[in-house]
């Protein structure tokens, strides 16, 4: 996803000289595509994320469109107040690119696991928050949002292979994408864990349980109308995210349901405990937190059974 994103960014930079790329010394082997083609618009600012956001604020106020790049935790949490008082307060076109949302940096450990990045940025009005589900959607998201007036946060994964069946790279601000339909349950998923959610739905289909899957990549602005339309069809909704259950898509769905008086039950699947040992690979950690296809399949099956008994 990140390599596709940077390649697409380089194509945009070819057309528009305002586009710059700053990194806090991360992205080795990923950013060369841009750095090699546009050396005067590429800056490795060193391991200093706060300064990177401050510099980007000054550049953006001067007419540039700076993309700032780091691992998702370092891109969002360390410079959070700079993001708040800089691009958001001044409504400037700074683009924050956070790589490795969720557990993608598996064995690197909790310092590298971004499970609150979407939440802390989503609660700020005035910043667009995008969490693509696969690399094709990431490319479309970039191509349709890079020129927005205000700031944008892109939460990217590292995978360049897996595609979400039925998504076909679709993205539209303020919209959600229904990639699979069904009548037993609605699964609403955010981010690169989406293929796991679709795989769970496919496995349940074998047993005759048909689940709909809705991808929410445009977290802010909220795809309110699409969510209302889909949530209204179901008695139970299962949310899935490699993120704390508070603040991310689970909260978002619960808010839309409550705000609009929808009658559905919202079952949130995400990280519910503080980060820490045991560690392991991304696959291990997703399973540990109930986010592997197998665990999601059983969570969905249970939710369907509970719904039938209500």
């Amino acid at each position: 996803m990140r390599a596709t994103f940077i390649k697409a960014l380089a194509e945009i930079a070819e057309r528009d000289e305002r586009v710059m790329l700053l990194t806090a010394d991360l992205g080795y082997t990923v950013l060369e595509e841009f750095a090699g083609r546009f050396p005067s618009r590429f800056f490795n600012v060193g391991v200093a994320e706060q300064n990177m956001l401050g510099v980007a604020t000054g550049l953006a106020e001067s007419g540039f469109i700076p993309f700032v790049y780091s691992i998702a935790t370092f891109a969002t949490l360390r410079p959070y107040e700079f993001i708040r008082n800089g691009p958001i307060l001044h409504q400037l076109p700074v683009r924050i690119v956070g790589v490795g949302g969720g557990f993608e940096y598996g064995t690197a450990g909790p310092t590298h696991h971004a499970v609150e990045d979407v939440g802390v940025l989503r609660l700020q009005p005035g910043i667009t928050v995008i969490a693509p589900a696969d690399y094709n959607q990431a490319r479309t998201a970039l191509e349709t949002t890079w020129e927005l007036d205000g700031p944008v946060y892109y939460r990217l994964g590292k995978d360049e292979q897996r595609l979400v069946p039925g998504l076909d790279g679709a993205f539209s601000l303020g919209r959600a994408q229904l990639v699979r339909d069904g009548d037993a349950l609605l699964i609403v998923v955010m981010g690169s864990v989406a293929p796991e959610a679709v795989a769970a739905a496919e496995e349940l289909s074998v047993d005759g349980i048909e689940c709909a899957v809705l991808v929410v990549a445009s977290v802010s602005p909220v795809p309110e109308e699409d969510l209302i339309e889909q949530l209204s069809r179901f008695r139970t909704v299962l949310t899935v995210e490699a993120h704390f259950v508070t603040g991310g898509v689970g909260s978002l769905v619960a808010e839309v349901a409550a705000d609009n008086g929808l009658g559905c039950r919202v079952v949130r699947n995400g990280v519910k405990v503080p980060l820490g040992a045991p560690g392991g690979s991304e696959a291990y950690l997703l399973d540990h937190h109930g986010l592997s296809r197998g665990k999601l399949r059983e969570a969905a099956r249970l939710a369907v059974l509970q719904t039938a008994s209500i």
């Binding site: 800056f43 706060q50 300064n51 956001l53 401050g54 510099v55 980007a56 604020t57 000054g58 550049l59 953006a60 106020e61 001067s62 007419g63 540039f64 700079f82 800089g86």
Partner: peptide
């Protein structure tokens, strides 16, 4: 000062 550095770099 970070913001000022960005403005100066832009200049």
């Amino acid at each position: 000062l970070s913001i000022g550095a960005g403005v100066a770099l832009a200049s």
